[in-house]
Design a protein around this nucleic acid. Structure first.
Length: 466
RNA sequence: UCCUCCGUAGCUCAAUGGUAGAGCAUUCGGCUGUUAACCGAAGGGUUGUAGGUUCGAGACCUACCGGAGGAGCCA
């Protein structure tokens, strides 16, 4: 008998009348003393469960079938038949139900067939994928990841595997996790008492990468269109619903391109992966719309059909000053946009994602290209309702003299960037790119409020149990 | 890291400073081609931890631990 997935059985890809085997985990059991039981079986291949009808004349009916509880692993053989009941089109008329793995203490099985809080489920992260919510998140997350690779592949981008261990805090993008094999209790020391990093594994200080951007720029300057997609690490003591210590970032980089082309790419990319979710994960999105965020489907549909609002930083400041309200953080040209400002722009003023471009150079990174006005850089942030900054990008400074002036001006050491500066010495060209917080994108799509609930095993301060 | 709120049964939550309760789950019984089924019964507690106030603390005070929301940092 062929082993079929529940997605294929419920999706009409197996003909009614076929003899099949199904393997999965029990969600619910309802007994009919008329002599049969209904067992809801999930295998995670789609949102819905398969109803397995177990007749009372099965050899193990009294001894095993009626003892099935949530979480048990089973294999069921039987005929796929049209359902007599409501709620499902087809069901499995079981000829055999084999219990592969029992739940040893049903009373304390952490995932009961009832509503659990997301906070509680975080404490049982090894079992939460068995719930409707986390199964749906996992499938949508995968859909977004596959759609990401498809989007870039179809446009001639190459996926570059940038390193996870890096020897320099190149970007200055935050606190770093140190990678070291030195003895913490008794490290080798220099004559002046400081730690002698030359004796460490890499012969110098090393850290987990906070961004693949600087590395991927080198491949951009050879392969034209490239991107990274991998884990990124920040050791900041951030305790919020939108920060993780380990998160996944997508960073495309395009040569012979300016900031406008960069914004165009960001918009096309987001629309593409959101459309994939609408096309491929209707079952899961229907669940999110019903139980998590009622507007999540129409929000995506509107997103795919409309265009981003675009404004300059200077225009954004003007909008905020005209908003007719007092801000906790006063608004004036030159200040960084705070959460309350970003929220107003995308949630109230536009009610759509907004691209803010051309920020003051003082509040942005050294590698962003200086505009002709001499006071702004070609940077952009894409702000999404409910999430905040989902994309940060820029056109890169391709002129060596300007780049050097920026490095000096920010008090950085040019020698640390020798290979990055080399790119400007050998065939430099305009180029641009952005970083997308993948997990934040999953939040936006699903309507899930906390970033710890859209990554399988969240890492955050004091959180690394699983 | 800062501000605010929260911590009671396996889970979700009640309980004026005065005998710790309900729903779901679990076990047992009844009923039914059932849909988070339904009806009845039973078991289940060092109220996050450690001190303190009080005749008496789940409740009030202090510290710590854990969680949530907001802020900062950012993606």
């Amino acid at each position: 008998m062929a082993w079929e997935t529940i997605a294929d059985l419920l999706g009409g890809r197996v003909t009614v009348g076929a003899e099949v085997t199904v393997k999965g985990w029990v969600r619910t059991r309802r007994d009919s003393k008329a002599g049969l039981s209904f067992v809801g079986v999930h295998d995670g291949t789609c949102f819905d469960a398969l109803q397995v009808v177990a007749p009372g004349d099965l050899g193990n009916y009294a001894t095993e079938v009626v003892r099935l509880s949530a979480g048990c692993a089973v294999e069921c053989d039987g005929e796929l038949v049209a359902s007599q009941g409501k709620g499902q089109s087809v069901e499995l008329k079981a000829a055999a139900v084999r219990v592969v793995g029992w739940v040893e203490d049903p009373e304390t099985y952490p995932v009961q067939p009832k509503r659990h809080t997301l906070e509680y489920l975080r404490e049982v992260a090894h079992l939460r994928p068995r719930t409707n919510t986390f199964g749906a998140v996992a499938r949508v997350r995968n859909c977004l990841a596959q759609a990401t690779h498809r989007f870039f592949h179809e446009r001639g981008f190459y996926w570059i595997h940038t390193p996870i261990i890096t020897a320099s805090d190149a970007e200055g993008a935050g606190e770093l996790f140190r990678v070291s094999t030195l003895d913490l209790v008794n490290p080798p020391r220099n004559p002046d008492g400081t730690i002698d990093w030359s004796q460490d594994f890499f012969g110098k200080q090393a850290f987990l990468s906070v961004s693949g951007q600087l590395n991927v720029e080198t491949y951009c300057q050879a392969l034209t269109r490239v991107y990274t997609f991998g884990p990124t690490f920040r050791a900041e003591n951030s305790n919020t619903s939108r920060h993780l210590s380990e998160f996944w970032m997508i960073e495309p980089e395009i040569a012979f391109a300016d900031l406008r082309a960069d914004a165009d790419l960001a918009e096309a990319y987001l629309k593409s992966i959101f459309k994939a979710v609408l096309d491929e994960r209707g079952d899961d999105m229907a669940f999110f719309a019903e139980h998590v965020e009622p507007t999540c489907i129409e929000r995506l549909e509107r997103f795919v059909d409309s265009s981003f609002e675009r404004m300059t930083y200077t225009e954004a400041i003007a909008h905020l000053q005209k908003a007719g309200r007092t801000w906790e953080y006063p608004v004036q040209w030159g200040c960084d946009l705070q959460s309350e400002h970003e929220r107003y722009l995308c949630e109230e003023l536009c009610t759509t994602p907004v691209v803010v471009m051309d920020y003051p150079k003082e509040i942005k990174a050294f590698y962003m290209r200086l505009n002709d006005d001499g006071r702004t850089v070609a940077a952009m942030d894409v702000l999404a309702p409910g999430i905040g900054e989902i994309i940060g990008g820029s056109q890169r400074e391709e002129r060596l003299d300007v780049l050097d002036a920026r490095i000096d001006g920010m008090g950085l050491d040019k020698r640390s960037y020798w290979w990055y500066r080399d790119l400007r010495r050998y065939g430099t060209c305009p180029h641009a790119g952005f970083g997308l917080g993948f997990d934040r994108a999953v939040n936006y799509v699903t309507g899930m409020k906390n970033i710890r609930d859209v990554i399988p095993f969240p890492r955050a301060p004091k959180l690394a149990e699983f």
